[in-house]
Simulated scan of single mutants.
Amino acid sequence: MTRNTDSEAVAGNWFRVIKRSTKPRARLICFPHAGGAASFFRDWADLVPDDMDLAAVRYPGREDRFLDPPHTSMADLADPVARACLASGDVPLMFFGHSMGASVAYEVALRLQSAGSSRLTDLFVSGSAAPGRSSGSRDPLTMTDAEIREEVAELGGADANALADQELWELLIPSIRADYRLIGLYRAGFSTTAPLDVPMVAYYGRADRDVDAASVAAWADATSSTFAMRSFDGGHFYLKDHAPGLVADLLGRRAPFHP
């Protein structure tokens, strides 16, 4: 596949290219949190090397996909993202997913493995309990819009202006509610699958009220390859304050580039 075709695939409906290398030796794909969007990772452009592409998943129902219907299930989201990954050339892939994005990245990784693809070299998960582990004290399936708004404010994942402006909040809540429903259904229906054969690193904030060391350490059961974990100061969105250290750490732990 030519580089032009590859670039078109990466920049297509499911990915926003944040940084493009002329000769990429790897591509880091980031998966946003519930209520999040691809732009959350725009400041990472200066943190990755010039021989790496940086892209983020464009969830439907927000930003430049605002008019697209939000997803209704994990399969509804992970299936097309996996197909987009498979269609994006032969550059080695690394996934980073935060919060809900950790589960989405994991499910996309499972689909790539099932398809016989070996392009994924590393899976980095963040701010999330392992699949099958409970997270937080509230059930996402029963939370009201007011409770969701309160939790988003407490976790620090949204712009303060979005929370204060009622009209703006009403525009955002459908996609956020869809995310909460997706992760609630996913947790309720999760069943153990064959582990990935991909190195995995799990990150979390030491003051995160929704995850702890034990629930993060349980990600080790999701891979038959190597597993490591690291914590940072801060809460659920510790990565806002620690992006340089986080990216440096994950790049230092990545599998060797393919020749």
Rank of each mutant, 00 (worst) to 15 (best):
R138V: 12
L155N: 02
S117K: 05
L120R: 02
R149S: 12
E170T: 11
T121L: 12
Q113R: 10
M143Q: 13
E150M: 12
A109C: 02
G127F: 11
A146K: 06
S128K: 15
A115W: 07
L123N: 00
Y180M: 06
R149D: 10
S126A: 15
D122I: 00
E147L: 06
R181S: 13
P174Q: 02
G116A: 12
T121G: 13
E150P: 08
G184T: 04
R177A: 06
A130F: 05
S175T: 15
L155W: 03
A164E: 10
L123A: 02
R177V: 06
A146F: 02
D145A: 05
I176S: 00
E151H: 13
A153S: 14
D122T: 01
F124Q: 01
R119G: 04
V152A: 15
D159K: 14
R181H: 14
A153L: 10
T121W: 07
A164Y: 03
A153H: 13
A129N: 01
M143C: 15
I183Y: 03
S114P: 03
L110M: 11
S175M: 11
A178K: 03
R149C: 14
G136N: 10
I176G: 01
Y186Q: 07
Y180S: 01
E167A: 15
D139F: 08
D122P: 00
R177N: 07
S128H: 13
S126F: 09
G157W: 04
D179M: 03
E151T: 14
G156P: 00
D145M: 03
Q166L: 12
W169F: 14
L110R: 07
R187K: 02
A129I: 02
I183V: 10
E107Q: 15
A188F: 08
D145T: 06
L171C: 10
G189F: 01
D122R: 00
R111M: 10
E167G: 12
E107Y: 13
A153M: 13
Y186W: 10
E147I: 04
T144F: 07
T142H: 11
W169R: 05
L163V: 00
A160G: 13
L120W: 00
Q113V: 13
D145S: 01
G132M: 14
L168W: 02
L141A: 13
G116D: 12
L168Y: 03
A129G: 02
D145V: 04
A109W: 00
L163T: 02
G156Y: 04
S114D: 12
G157M: 03
P174H: 02
A158L: 10
L172K: 01
G116K: 11
L141G: 13
L171V: 08
G156T: 04
G156C: 05
S114M: 08
E147Y: 05
L112H: 03
A153Q: 12
L141Y: 08
E150I: 09
S137N: 15
E150Y: 08
P140F: 05
E147C: 06
